[in-house]
């Protein structure tokens, strides 16, 4: 009951004159409001704890050094310090962002393991083997261009030099090779997807 009657201004004055219990009363009186304010900004218990602690360290330092001018605004002053420390915290995190996986968004829903699992690897191997078999059905000139382009990763310029035909002819053979492959796939009702 006595706590309610003593104003912040009186407690601050007592503390500045060396009364440690006055600080305890001030913290007890305002801890919920200040801590809630910090937590409402950072939404992290540990960070809120750190900022709350830093806030009161600044308060203690300022009061002990006698730099505080009491104008009946103790709480707004402490809140301002907390607010500034919250801003400092976000500035630091902007430079060095910290990943927080506690929210609704789960990073692992977008970051997946790009390596294939055993099943998809087997399917992929089967499809590649099927395609290799299909290619064998192409006419020799088309088979040659397609193999050089897809499996040997050669440019059409290199293919034209190697096969002794013009680039346009090589491009044409490649085009017909793909058209014919599609026809063969349709003809045999093949499904070549994972």
């Amino acid at each position: 009951m006595n706590n309610v009657e003593i104003t912040d201004a009186v407690l601050v004055r007592e503390y500045m004159h060396g009364s440690e219990p006055a600080l305890s009363k001030l913290i007890t009186r305002h801890q919920h409001r200040i801590y809630s304010f910090i937590f409402s900004k950072v939404f992290d218990r540990d960070v809120a704890e750190d900022i709350f602690q830093d806030t009161f360290i600044k308060v203690i330092n300022t009061l002990k050094k006698g730099k505080y001018n009491e104008e009946g605004k103790f709480l707004p002053w402490v809140m301002r310090i907390a607010h500034n420390l919250v801003i400092d915290h976000f500035r630091r995190n902007k430079r060095m962002p910290k990943f927080d996986n506690s929210g609704d968004f789960n990073i692992f829903s977008v970051l997946s393991d790009s390596d294939l699992n055993v099943e998809t690897q087997i399917i992929k191997d089967q499809i590649e083997n099927d395609v290799k078999e299909l290619i064998k059905e192409l006419p020799e000139d088309q088979l040659e261009v397609l193999t050089m382009r897809i499996y040997k990763d050669m440019s059409f310029k290199e293919i034209s030099e190697r096969t002794g035909v013009s680039i346009n002819t090589a491009l044409g053979r490649m085009r017909y090779a793909l058209i014919n492959l599609r026809k063969i796939i349709e003809k045999h009702n093949l499904v070549l997807t994972n």
């Binding site: 600080l23 801890q31 919920h32 809630s36 937590f39 704890e49 602690q53 360290i57 203690i60």
Partner: peptide, 19 residues
């Protein structure tokens, strides 16, 4: 989450000891 928010006792104890 904002209800019943209080700093840890250790934090308060640290501040009083620091002071």
């Amino acid at each position: 989450q904002l209800k019943n928010l209080e700093p840890k006792k250790e934090t308060l104890q640290f501040l009083l000891s620091y002071s």
